[in-house]
Design a protein around this nucleic acid. Structure first.
Length: 581
DNA sequence: GCCGTTTTCGGCCCGACTGTTTTCAGTCG
């Protein structure tokens, strides 16, 4: 069993223990062991073999043995026993916001509920509200939570969909029968969540390709198995469609199945205006039987007198017009990013040491890296007290000596307190190279108060970057109530860059806000918010958001050199007096 | 179940919020 699966199993054990009302600290021990292993560099099998597993913080006698059993045999008796005691469906119910292990256990033990429809029924007919510790309001909240889960239930994170699609594409590419292959759909357009995976193949032998496709590993169910289209449900619950076309049709099919639907409609309208009919098989001059020949997607656009439009922009938000006018932006690329900004270390809630994070940043080719641990109010994340901030400065100087190419910057992720103040006095803030300001508490404030709070923080002269501006967790938590326009305007005015948090569950700022923000004079920072070395590799997800938001390298702060990055606010913030509305 | 310059037992991150209670439990970050 590999590392991700071991981590998942440990997390599931923690949840199962909570459901069984075991010692809560025991559950937490499994949770923290899972986190440690997730962040531990190196091959898990080797760690087990060498015994170095036990050097990892949080792994002792008990869990160590269980991890070894998992790695070596792929099974774990302890885990299987736990699962036998609790209906597995109950775990799924915990996704409902406000419905935690205690409530789930109560509903299950007294009413026998282990399934979402039953839970909804009990919430509606009043049975739930009668349980001790429940009430009318709780039942109502659970109904709303169920609604939320349902409305997001059939969608998947971009990162997960990509992880599911890549091995399929790799496997099919090995077939001789496959001439060209590419992922299309919302995945190719880099939407933040994905409903299903679309793969387009050109081949002279569709039957061979389709037969191989439906026989691939990791498929739970074959929904359809035809010559031009097959459809399967993968083990993770994601649907995957495969389309086979001839090599001549491929560019048209790829464009068609990349979408978006609205983009396609607009493209067909353009084609029509030029006397052409456009569909997934080709571009047909009026009355003609056969399509124009286009060797690739570029040629399809050229036939409509357009430059190639990057898939990320194909949302019918003016990209065709911009293309026609020669005004498409030169979209930012991952390689443009020079600074790996916003990561956590073992000082707060990260699982890797500063030096390890720096080493990985250097290996990935970054010129500088900005550490950003949590501030003192974030007690749950072991936020840094003022003296720890000062000590971290010394630590950075020490570690810096070990690096020639990489420059380390000292930042902090300061909580925005309830009234909009930052989490340290000026004497501490002024020692830092930059300050990310973020909201981690009091999410439920009324819109007006939240907006005021946010703007007050933005106007703090030490604020550099507004962290995960909407606070959303994709498929889990909605953004907080906020007058985003007012916030963007304030950020533009105060020269506070907007973070594009690249964590796959955040992707926050939303791409839809980027263009608006840019028009208001805002700049951006694409940050991994990494809590371990592997998290640094999330940066490209953030680049995807920036590209969808029409951003270029000039818009992004951490495309600057380290010196320019540090000086950006100080130098350019000076001139005019701040005008207040 | 883990951990240890308060070390082999007794702590374990902790405070806010919400809704349920009539002083607190559950959830969340």
């Amino acid at each position: 069993m590999d590392k991700p699966e071991v981590v998942r199993t440990l997390r599931e054990i923690a949840t199962l223990l909570e459901l069984q009302e075991e010692n809560p600290f025991k559950a937490r021990a499994y949770e923290s062991a899972a986190r440690s292993i997730e962040g531990a560099p190196g091959d898990l099998e080797a760690l087990v073999a060498s015994g170095d597993l036990y050097k990892i913080k949080g792994i002792g006698e008990g869990i160590g043995k269980k991890v070894a059993e998992l790695v070596q045999t792929g099974r774990l008796g302890y885990y299987e026993d736990l699962r036998a005691n609790v209906p597995i469906e109950l775990l799924g119910l915990l996704r409902i916001p406000g419905f935690g292990p205690k409530k789930a256990r109560a509903a299950w033990q007294t009413l026998g509920i282990d399934e979402i429809d039953e839970l909804e029924q009990a919430a509606r007919d009043g049975r739930l509200a009668k349980l001790p510790g429940f009430g009318e309001k709780t039942a109502q909240n659970i109904l709303e939570g169920i609604e939320f889960v349902r409305s997001h239930g059939d969608r998947h994170l971009y990162s997960e969909a990509w992880a599911a699609a890549a091995p399929i594409v790799d496997a099919l590419r090995e077939l001789k029968a496959v001439q060209r292959i590419k992922v299309g759909g919302s995945l190719r357009r880099r939407r933040e969540t994905i409903k299903d995976i679309d793969i387009v193949v050109s081949t002279g032998k569709p039957r061979t390709v389709m037969d191989r496709f439906v026989a691939l590993g990791g498929i739970e169910r074959v929904v359809a198995h035809g010559e031009t289209k097959s459809s399967v449900t993968l083990a993770g619950g994601i649907n995957c469609d495969l389309r086979c076309v001839s090599d001549a049709q491929y560019p048209f099919a790829l464009h068609y199945f990349t979408g978006s639907k609205d983009h396609n409609v607009a493209m067909r309208r353009r084609a029509q205006g030029m006397g052409l009919k456009m569909n997934e098989y080709g571009l047909f001059p009026d009355g003609a039987e056969s399509s124009l020949e286009c060797a690739d997607e570029q040629a399809v656009f050229a036939a409509l007198q357009l430059p190639w439009i990057p898939p990320e922009l194909r949302e019918d938000t003016g990209e065709i017009e911009a293309a026609a006018n020669g005004e498409l932006p030169a979209l930012i690329e991952t390689g443009d990013i020079r600074g790996m900004i916003h990561f956590h270390t073992t000082e707060s809630d990260g699982v890797c040491a500063l030096e390890d994070m720096a080493r990985e940043a250097e290996r990935l080719g970054y010129a500088y890296a900005g550490v950003c641990d949590h501030s003192q109010s974030a007690a749950y994340a072991r936020g840094l007290k003022p003296d720890q901030v000062l000590r971290q400065r010394e630590e950075i100087e020490k570690v810096q000596k070990k690096f020639k190419k990489l420059r380390l910057l000292h930042g902090i992720e300061s909580d925005i307190l309830a009234e909009g103040a930052l989490d340290y006095p000026e004497s501490i803030l002024k020692t830092l190279d930059f300050v990310v300001i973020s909201i981690h508490s009091r999410f439920g404030m009324p819109k007006a108060d939240m907006t005021k709070r946010m703007i007050a923080a933005i106007e703090n002269p030490y604020a550099t970057i507004l962290g995960h501006p909407t606070g959303r967790l994709l498929l889990q938590r909605d953004p907080y109530e906020l007058d985003m326009d007012a916030v963007l305007e304030a950020a533009g005015r105060a020269r506070v860059a907007l973070e594009i948090n690249a964590h796959p569950m955040r992707l926050d700022l939303d791409w839809r806000e980027c263009r608006k923000a840019k028009a208001l004079g805002c700049r951006f920072a694409i940050c991994p918010d990494a809590h371990n070395t592997e998290g640094i590799a999330d940066v490209p997800y953030g680049v995807g958001v920036a590209r969808k938001g029409w951003l270029t390298r000039e818009d992004v702060l951490n495309c600057l050199t380290a010196e320019e990055f540090v000086q950006w606010k100080r130098v350019e913030a000076k001139p005019k007096k701040r005008t207040r509305k």
